[in-house]
Simulated assay, not measured.
Amino acid sequence: MVRETVLRVRYSEIDAQGHVNNANYLSYFEVGRVEWLRDAGHSYREMEERGYGFVVVEALVRYRRAAYFDDELKIRTEISDLSRASVQFAYEVLREDGLVATGHTRHAYVDLASGKPIRMPKELDLLGSG
């Protein structure tokens, strides 16, 4: 399942050169991931209430072109790899004139009380969702 989320670049997200600061792309990825999960019938809040969550174990961003204040960006998010112990989301950040950035984040499932890795909880069922 591919989920598209639209957002507009805020002034606070640009740097001294006038384009989106590179670190903000990880926040954009997070917006896409949260909305992907919501569309799949899950939420971070529900996962936390059940005692488990995701921790980022890997993040990669490839910058293709600059984005600027007030640009409307589309974040495409999908699962690119899934195992019993982790999930990887892939992202594309697009503007109407083309690709701005691509990347991925890999997340381990963890028990929030102990911080220890766990297998994907049955009720999460990302295989059935994606």
Rank of each mutant, 00 (worst) to 15 (best):
P117S: 15
G103C: 03
I79N: 06
A113I: 09
Y52S: 00
D125F: 01
I118W: 02
H107T: 03
E96S: 12
A101Q: 01
Y11P: 01
A85S: 09
I75H: 09
P121G: 05
V31I: 15
Q88D: 10
Y68A: 04
E96P: 15
Y11C: 01
Q88Y: 01
T77V: 03
Q88T: 15
E49M: 09
G115I: 14
W36C: 08
L124I: 08
R38G: 14
L99D: 08
T77C: 04
H104P: 09
V110M: 06
E72L: 13
E78Q: 13
Y91P: 02
D39R: 13
M120N: 01
R50V: 01
D39H: 09
S86Q: 10
G32Y: 02
R95I: 12
F69D: 04
E123A: 09
K116F: 03
G115V: 12
L99C: 09
S86V: 05
V57C: 14
Y11M: 03
Y68N: 05
V55N: 07
A59F: 12
G98P: 08
D97L: 06
E30F: 02
A101P: 04
D97Y: 14
Y44A: 04
D97P: 08
P117K: 01
S12P: 06
T105F: 10
V9I: 13
L26S: 05
R95N: 07
M120F: 00
F54M: 04
S12K: 06
A108V: 12
L124G: 00
G53L: 12
V87C: 11
L94F: 13
L37S: 05
R84V: 03
E72C: 01
D81L: 01
G115N: 08
G103K: 00
S12C: 09
L37R: 07
M120V: 05
G51I: 14
A59D: 06
I79E: 01
T77F: 00
K122S: 13
V100S: 03
A66F: 10
M120T: 00
F29Y: 12
E96I: 11
A101K: 00
E49S: 13
A23F: 08
I75R: 03
D70S: 15
V87G: 02
R45E: 12
G103R: 00
P117L: 09
N24L: 13
D70F: 12
F54C: 01
A59C: 10
V56S: 13
A66H: 06
D81T: 00
E35G: 08
D97M: 06
E78R: 14
R84I: 07
D71Y: 03
